[in-house]
């Protein structure tokens, strides 16, 4: 028993060498090549821990990445100074500003869009507001022959309770109709 244990002790390499030797007996010409092959296999790179690390990193970045943020910006230039849009209105620009008022109606989701100083049917949504504003614009380059220039000031005048979503919707419609001078009315002090 002890003898056999001793011969086994040098490990697999010795065992493999013995096996290789026994093979060599059978096929004498290929004996040397077989031995070489065994030593190549021993020199394989152990990348297990590296793979563990890589998978962990991959999982971390997959889970932390946030793709759903489809956020963009609609640029606006607000009038500088105290008073907000009210001061812009009192400086009396040569062109009469178009005042678009937004009012809540019934449930919070609904909004009424009205032009304050011109008589026109209230647009039913912001798509309609965009249509109306486009038709009102004087822009020969885009086949528009209305009476308002693109630089005509437009003031958005929402009620207190109007949702921000609607305010931005109105602003977006105005910017989309290529008006460049848009401001937001300040709330009346009370």
């Amino acid at each position: 028993m002890t003898e056999s244990r001793d011969t086994n002790k040098p490990g697999d390499l010795a065992a493999a060498a013995v096996v290789a030797g026994s093979h060599a007996e059978g096929h004498e010409t290929h004996g040397k090549r077989k031995k070489h092959k065994v030593s190549i296999k021993v020199a394989a790179l152990n990348i297990t821990s590296f793979m563990d690390l890589t998978f962990n990193l991959l999982l971390f970045f997959v889970l932390t990445a946030s793709f759903s943020i489809g956020e963009g910006v609609v640029p606006a230039d607000l009038p500088v100074g105290s008073g907000g849009a009210a001061s812009a209105a009192t400086t009396a620009p040569p062109m009469t500003p178009l005042v678009i008022s937004l009012r809540t109606f019934g449930s919070l989701d609904k909004v009424v869009i009205q032009f304050e100083n011109i008589s026109i049917d209230p647009p039913k949504d912001f798509e309609a507001l965009y249509d109306v504003l486009s038709r009102m614009q004087d822009d020969p380059a885009h086949n528009r022959s209305g009476q308002y220039s693109a630089k005509n000031p437009i003031i958005i005048k929402p009620d207190r309770g109007v949702m921000w979503n609607h305010v931005v919707g109105a602003f977006n419609a105005i910017v989309r109709a290529r008006y460049s001078n848009v401001s937001f009315a300040a709330l009346p002090e009370n």
Binding site: G70, E71, G72, V74, P75, G81
Partner: peptide, 13 residues
């Protein structure tokens, strides 16, 4: 606007 900043971008979808 009282801080003297006029360039405001409104974040939207």
């Amino acid at each position: 606007t009282e801080a003297g900043i006029s360039h405001v971008n409104i974040v939207a979808g």
